[in-house]
Amino acid sequence: MADTSLIRRAVTARSQLFLILLVLAAILVPVLNLAVPAGSFFHLPSYAVSLFGKYLCYALLALSVDLIWGYCGILSLGHGAFFALGGYAMGMHLMREIGSRGVYGDPLLPDFMVFLNWQELPWFWHGFGSFPFAVLMALLVPGVLAFIFGWFAFRSRVTGVYLSIITQAMTYALMLAFFRNEMGFGGNNGLTDFKDVLGFNLQSDATRAGLFVVTAAALAGGYLLCRWVVGSKAGKVLVAVRDAESRTRFLGYKVEHYKLFVFTLSAMLAGIAGALYTPQVGIINPSEFSPANSIEIVVWVAVGGRGTLVGAVIGALIVNGAKTLFTGWFPEIWLFALGALFVVVTLFMPQGVLGLARGQGGLAEGAKRALAFLEQAGIKRKGTGS
């Protein structure tokens, strides 16, 4: 009964509206691209399908950051690293799928390895010829890195700005490492020139539409998972950690364990977003590790509304839509516009677009409910002597 109750709480009215809109997008975008004749007013060009798919990948990435920042108070400035690692895992599979169709015609070595005179495939590339293995690595590699990083950071009680700085240092170190040719990941050019995925041509309209639908499904699944987590008892503990960590620790909760759990889960969601991003964009390179990218993710969440999940998705769509327009019309002022947007949101819309639409007090009300729950649970624990 408890599990059923959690599922019902996860699918709120707002969640239902969000999921309905997502389903409509998953239906309309492929139909407008594949079924409506080219040249028609309602025809959606193929590049727009890939662009919207990229936006949904960013939305899933923003969701992962909101899970830890909005509900646990962990401001990570390194989530771009987990996103990029997931992207590289899928990119390695797509490179293996090219086979002898590459420029140099080598059936085993990717073109960049042939160019650099590599004699054999590195050990860490073995297994990536399998699609399930690549998907597993897109989950495990970011998850294991987040677990190891979080284990040391949270046990040492590193919090606040110090945690943000070391997460940014982590992604910067990875960026420098992946830029090196001897690492075996394509150096500064990264991985590109993909041909197909699961036998489907990546340049065909049907494949692009299919990837969009899969990305929409992943976003829906990620949203429901996050909503289930924050609606559970563990979710109330996470909110309490965000707003009163010392008090939560005093009540007997292992704060480090909750932080480690949500941080690892968030990294795995970011990895899946990266894995879906790579085939739709057609390239993955070390620039995805850039610390500026991780900072931009935080801006998406802040603009949409921290601690709302749906707001994170909205923020990712708004900011990236604006980025597409500004970089096309006024590319030289985009970074200034982004900085100004963050300042305006911080000063005048602390709860973002969604908070502005629904009124103030969302985070505060959630914190009060979480602390009340924990105090009652703490009293019961002392009463039972457990």
Rank of each mutant, 00 (worst) to 15 (best):
T171S: 07
L371C: 04
A367S: 14
G143W: 05
G221W: 05
A312H: 01
L371D: 03
I27L: 13
A240K: 01
A81W: 02
A275I: 08
V65C: 05
F124N: 12
K54T: 15
G127M: 10
L67M: 14
A153F: 04
L174W: 07
F194H: 08
L32F: 14
F336H: 05
D3I: 15
A206E: 09
F152K: 06
S130Y: 11
G307H: 08
L309P: 01
N189P: 02
S294M: 06
G210Y: 00
A81M: 09
G339P: 03
G129Q: 13
I333Y: 03
G362V: 15
Q16Y: 13
F373S: 02
N181G: 10
V241Q: 03
L219D: 03
L202A: 12
A177V: 14
F115Q: 14
L108V: 15
S164V: 07
F124P: 05
L354Q: 01
S15G: 15
A220G: 09
T248D: 01
I98C: 08
R249M: 13
P110F: 10
C72D: 10
F178N: 06
V29T: 12
C226H: 01
M268R: 00
G73S: 11
L22Y: 03
L24K: 06
R249W: 06
G235A: 12
S15C: 12
R8S: 14
L338H: 05
M268S: 04
G252D: 05
D111M: 10
C57Y: 04
H93R: 12
D66L: 09
K54Q: 13
N189Q: 14
G143S: 13
F83E: 08
K195Y: 14
S287M: 08
G235I: 12
G127V: 11
L85C: 08
L163R: 04
I98F: 03
V310G: 10
L108Y: 05
Y71K: 12
C72P: 04
S266L: 08
A357V: 15
I379Y: 03
A177W: 09
F178M: 11
Y162V: 13
G53R: 07
V23P: 03
G91C: 11
A292D: 09
F373T: 05
L269C: 06
Y162S: 15
A244V: 04
G385V: 11
G252W: 01
V65R: 01
A62E: 00
F263I: 13
A302V: 14
L219Y: 05
G99Y: 11
N188S: 14
G271V: 08
R306H: 07
A312F: 02
W228Y: 14
L265D: 03
L136R: 04
Y55I: 09
A312K: 04
L338N: 04
S287N: 13
L174G: 09
A169F: 11
A267P: 07
T248N: 00
V11C: 09
F133E: 08
I297P: 02
N285G: 13
V343I: 15
W334S: 08
V344M: 10
G366R: 09
F373K: 01
Q376F: 06
F373W: 11
V214P: 02
D196V: 10
